[in-house]
Simulated assay, not measured.
Amino acid sequence: MSPARHDRQSVVACALQLLDDVGLPDLSMRRLAAELDVQASALYWHFPNKQQLLAAVADRILSAVPDPDPALALAPTARAIRDALLAYRDGAEVVMSTYALRLGTRRAQAALAASIGDNGGDAGPFADAAFEFILGHAMLLQQRMHAQSIGAIDADGADPTAHSVDVFEAGIRAFESLSATRHPAEALESGRPAAAQP
């Protein structure tokens, strides 16, 4: 019996499952090919290299982020992005590596830009800054959880995510305040608190 044929989407789905099972360090093209019961060379029909594959995996991870919606405030948008990153083992690291190489879509940044009021594209750098905060926070959190799971840190039974929600919410409140100073009139119209002007 010949091996099953796979399309791009099924390869990405399998890679995402393998990521969850074994983690990013053990997610190789050879291992993925074995999981799909194909030769490793068959994967290069869909992806020219591993980084392009990881970019597609990152896009799949972020597909859970809501579509850009000006009616959706920054905090719920940021939480949705964080939750998408944390939904898969090493998810934040995969998205980080893709973002660093400027690969993949900008779905998360577009959602953030819409939430903070993108007037003609002027929110781009602000959205990138918010995304990098969310990404860094999620990556730090995943590393702490992994370190505890393998006994690399002496947690004394402590939750490695302790205070992480408070830190995240404090960061998002800071971004909301900065966003209000950018467009105070829009903040009032949207029901978001406008920060005091200097």
Rank of each mutant, 00 (worst) to 15 (best):
E176F: 02
N49A: 15
I150A: 03
R173W: 01
G120K: 08
V165T: 13
F126K: 09
A127D: 03
M145I: 01
W45S: 13
D154E: 14
M96S: 13
L62Q: 13
A71G: 11
E176V: 04
R89N: 12
L54H: 03
D59C: 09
V165Y: 02
A174L: 13
D69H: 06
H146Q: 15
Y44N: 08
A87D: 01
A75E: 15
A129H: 11
A129G: 14
W45I: 15
A158Q: 14
L43Y: 06
A84N: 04
L141G: 08
R82V: 00
F175A: 15
Y99I: 01
R173S: 10
L54N: 07
W45T: 15
T77D: 04
P76C: 04
A123M: 06
A108H: 07
F175N: 11
V95M: 07
A56V: 08
G157C: 06
G121K: 11
K50A: 12
P48G: 13
A55P: 13
A138M: 04
A80Q: 05
H163P: 00
D59F: 10
G91I: 00
Q109W: 03
G171C: 04
I153P: 02
P66M: 06
P66C: 06
S164H: 09
R144I: 03
G151N: 12
A92R: 08
L62C: 10
L103A: 12
A87H: 01
F126S: 09
A78Q: 07
A158Y: 04
S177W: 00
A80G: 03
V165G: 06
M145D: 05
A75Y: 06
E176K: 04
E132Q: 15
M139P: 00
Q142W: 02
A110E: 13
P68L: 07
G157M: 09
H146M: 11
R106A: 10
Q52T: 14
G151V: 05
D166G: 05
E176A: 14
D67Q: 09
D159Y: 01
G121T: 10
A108G: 12
M139A: 13
N49R: 12
P125D: 14
K50R: 15
G151E: 08
A78N: 10
G157F: 07
I81F: 09
L86S: 06
A138P: 05
V65S: 04
G121N: 11
D83E: 14
H146S: 07
A113S: 15
P76K: 10
L43T: 08
